[in-house]
Computed example of a mutant assay.
Amino acid sequence: MARYRGPKTKIARKFNDAIYGPDKTLAKKNYPPGQHGRGRRKKQSEYAIQLAEKQKAKYTYGLLEKQFSNLFDHASRKSGITGEILLQLLESRLDNVVFRLGIAPTRNAARQLVLHKHVTVNGDVLNIPSYSVKIGDVIAVREKSKSLEAITYSLSRGSATKYPWLEWNTSELSGKFMVVPTREEIPENIKEQLIVELYSK
């Protein structure tokens, strides 16, 4: 399945947002990439602004167009604020939860760990990155993978304590999905209402 594997800084500069984490180049070149990046840009249309926000969300969470569209359809069928539900569904993906727990340093790395069967959900090995984690689910590092250098290095950074909807057990290398996060708790700089307006056209 095709995924973006190009320069991450280029995408971060495109949206002027460090969507892949701290970026020294973005700090120096806070203008769009390309020959005319510094040039004067004409005022963007409403549609262009909405489309850019959707693209930013797609790149941030590492989804393809069809996956993102299907997830939006799912969110729109639920009762509540569609934009907030969309972000909650994105946050509930297994690859994202593995990333949030600090088991992997990036979502791409988390996806790889899941695909290579290094992660369990409620004791069972699960290799589906898009699996929707439920409240009460326990996500853990597989026993034979606990000494994997990539995992131990990522965990040493201690990022699991950042998110109030997750509970981390250091001795077991496992985390529990305690509650669906509220919009205020989700740190991503995404204007989800623009995405809703785009799909509502």
Score class of each variant (00 low, 15 high):
97 V>M: 07
3 R>G: 09
35 Q>G: 01
165 W>E: 08
174 S>N: 06
87 L>I: 14
84 E>R: 13
81 I>L: 11
87 L>A: 06
193 Q>R: 13
161 T>C: 03
103 I>R: 05
201 K>F: 06
10 K>E: 03
8 K>N: 10
123 G>F: 12
10 K>Q: 14
51 L>D: 08
38 R>I: 04
154 S>L: 03
199 Y>Q: 06
62 G>V: 05
46 E>I: 10
64 L>Q: 14
177 F>A: 04
102 G>K: 02
198 L>R: 10
177 F>E: 05
143 E>R: 14
63 L>I: 01
117 K>R: 15
75 A>C: 04
5 R>A: 12
136 G>P: 06
73 D>G: 07
72 F>T: 00
138 V>R: 12
81 I>P: 01
166 L>C: 07
117 K>A: 15
120 T>I: 11
125 V>F: 08
149 E>F: 13
171 S>I: 09
49 I>F: 00
29 K>S: 07
145 S>W: 02
152 T>R: 12
103 I>Q: 00
94 L>F: 10
55 Q>C: 07
9 T>P: 01
132 S>L: 13
175 G>K: 02
198 L>Q: 08
57 A>P: 10
20 Y>Q: 14
168 W>C: 07
186 I>D: 02
135 I>A: 13
131 Y>I: 05
117 K>F: 00
31 Y>G: 01
136 G>A: 02
119 V>K: 06
193 Q>P: 05
8 K>C: 00
105 P>L: 09
162 K>P: 01
162 K>C: 03
194 L>Y: 15
146 K>I: 04
37 G>H: 00
